[in-house]
């Protein structure tokens, strides 16, 4: 089981670097996080030794960058017909889905690791709570994983990468949006608190923010695990239905 996943993941991972997608993603991500943190997030002016202005922008960067990573995952296999080869090799559907997903997730992981100068800077300038920063990194990584799982599933449903990209952005946006105050205010005006909590509960933002406060709550981890697992499960079902079309 594991070896099949590993072989698929390694192939996919290398593919990201052959087509320069991985480099483009990492470079753009690093540039944009820098710009957002220092110019818009006012990192210096806040005069606080934390990385909040850095992490605050991650959901919005991921919203557009992660679907660009996930859009090719299955759409390309379906378009070139290589999916027929993959599905007739002695690996299970789950091995393929997990292998490809993990490859894409590690690209976002690498981008995240390469933001370490930010962490060094804040430690150089002051004395931040590094526990909080670790929780923030974890939250950011899980958030990227959630977006990617959505993107993988949508990519399997489409042959066209551009369409996969747009639909993924839209769905990810909905998942983010449901945690925004303006949406919650809209509900809280008339709906019972339970409904407001439920709407906020499905939001990536709510769980990401709670991790960003430095509290690694099991509920947030379980939430992301369920989201990822659910979308990947949907991914296998969509693939099984659509593979031969």
């Amino acid at each position: 089981m594991i070896s099949g996943i590993r072989v698929i993941a390694v192939r996919e991972f290398r593919g990201y670097f052959v087509t320069p997608l991985a480099y483009v993603f990492v470079v753009i991500f690093l540039m944009l996080t820098g710009i957002f943190t220092f110019y818009i997030g006012n990192f210096y002016g806040r005069d606080q030794a934390d990385l909040l202005p850095f992490f605050n922008f991650h959901p919005w960067l991921y919203l557009f960058l992660v679907p660009a990573v996930s859009m090719r995952l299955w759409a390309e296999e379906r378009k070139t017909g290589s999916i027929e080869l993959l599905m007739t090799l002695p690996v299970t559907l789950w091995q393929s889905v997990l292998g490809k997903y993990l490859a894409a997730w590690s690209i976002t992981g690498i981008a995240l690791i390469l933001t370490f100068p930010m962490w060094i800077t804040v430690n150089y300038l002051g004395e931040p709570d590094n526990g909080v920063i670790i929780a923030e990194y974890l939250g950011s990584f899980l958030l990227a994983g959630g977006f990617l799982a959505i993107g993988a599933c949508i990519s399997a449903a489409n042959r066209n990468q551009v369409i996969a990209f747009i639909i993924t952005v839209a769905i990810c946006f909905l998942f983010l949006l449901s945690g925004l105050p303006m949406v919650l205010d809209f509900f809280s005006a008339w709906a019972p608190q339970a409904v407001v909590d439920a709407v906020a509960g499905v939001s990536f933002l709510t769980h990401f923010n709670s991790l960003s406060k430095g509290v690694i709550d099991l509920r947030d981890i379980v939430y992301f695990a369920l989201v990822i697992g659910g979308w990947l499960y949907a991914n296998t079902i969509v693939l099984d239905m659509k593979k031969a079309e």
Binding site: R11, G15, V18, I83, E84, L85, T88, P90
Partner: peptide, 21 residues
Amino acid sequence: PTEVKSIIGYLPEGAPSYGEM
């Protein structure tokens, strides 16, 4: 399925493969 697939060699229509490799 996995056992069966491991004893089959299959050339799909159009001989698809991974173009970037």
